[in-house]
């Protein structure tokens, strides 16, 4: 009886409810991470070595792909802000958007699998005879990641206290000044989380690049995938680790922006 009560007690604690996810996290997130680190710092005989990193630095091809990937990610992120901010602004403005339906339409593409969307893009480009390549790649990236930029910005703009805009007008700011001096600074947390949502995954994409460039342009994700596929686990792991570190650094950079903690975010 006592044991039963102890079990019940244990189950009723809130922290207990985290257990299934904690197990999942351990097996599918923590363990692979540890494996990546172990593989990255060993050679194919399983001995400790820095040979993988040496190989990365000495091979200009890998470094170039890496730099190029970051470049593509930056361009994609920039274009997403350029397209996403006005869209989010229109969506959040009650005069321009009277229902939630329009917001829904912007989010709708997220419901379709990324590969399906990309294959459709390839078919579309073929159909209208636009050659696949760098342009198509950037188009595909922006198309796929745009909702991830719009939504956090839309969220911050929508939650913004409208009286702040009135206060600025009241103090003599004309509409354009209100936008640049109040709306934009206050929506920065949303823009920051939008950048996080777009920049990080774009560094590591490979499927979009493969499909939209007919395998002509290699991104860093592709390089990792090729190495792993060809049994070069140690080198692949090292490349993955480098990418993770870069993403980690960029996320630290955005966390230092204190406002991102209280506002914004995808949910």
């Amino acid at each position: 009886m006592k044991i039963l009560r102890n079990i019940l007690n244990y189950l009723s604690r809130r922290s207990t409810w985290a257990l299934p996810y904690a197990i999942f996290l351990g097996i599918f997130v923590a363990l692979p991470m540890i494996l990546i680190v172990i593989f990255a710092f060993t050679n194919n005989q399983g001995e400790f070595s820095l040979i993988n990193f040496e190989k990365f630095i000495t091979q200009p091809e890998a470094v170039n792909t890496f730099v190029y990937s970051i470049g593509i990610a930056l361009v994609t992120t920039f274009l997403c802000i350029l397209l996403g901010y006005p869209a989010a602004y229109i969506l959040s403005n009650k005069n321009l958007n009277r229902s939630q339906t329009t917001a829904m339409l912007f989010i709708l593409p997220m419901w379709i699998n990324i590969l399906v969307r990309t294959l459709a893009t390839v078919a579309l480009f073929d159909f209208i005879h636009i050659p696949l390549g760098e342009g198509a790649l950037i188009f595909g990236m922006v198309y796929n990641f745009l909702p991830f930029m719009i939504y956090p910005i839309y969220n911050t703009l929508q939650k913004m206290d409208h009286s702040l805009i009135e206060a600025a007008e009241d103090l003599g700011a004309k509409p354009s000044t209100v936008f640049w001096k109040v709306t934009v600074p206050l929506s920065m947390p949303g823009v920051m989380s939008g950048i996080m949502m777009v920049f990080m995954p774009t560094i590591s994409t490979f499927a979009i690049a493969e499909l939209l460039t007919m395998n002509n342009i290699k991104l860093f994700g592709t390089t990792i995938q090729e190495n792993i596929n060809n049994g070069m686990w140690n080198y692949g792991a090292a490349l993955s680790l480098i990418m993770l570190v870069i993403i980690g650094i960029s996320s630290l950079f955005s966390d230092s922006d204190e406002q991102s903690q209280n506002e914004g975010g995808i949910i």
């Binding site: 206290d161 009286s163 702040l164 009135e166 206060a167 600025a168 007008e169 009241d170 103090l171 003599g172 700011a173 004309k174 001096k181 109040v182 600074p185 206050l186 920065m188 406002q259």
Partner: peptide, 27 residues
Amino acid sequence: PHRRPLNTVFQRYALFPHLNVYDNIAF
């Protein structure tokens, strides 16, 4: 409103959270 020679004190203050006290007043 931006061309009217009057100013408002809002019920819920409406201070700009991204500016400090000085910059709010100097706005």
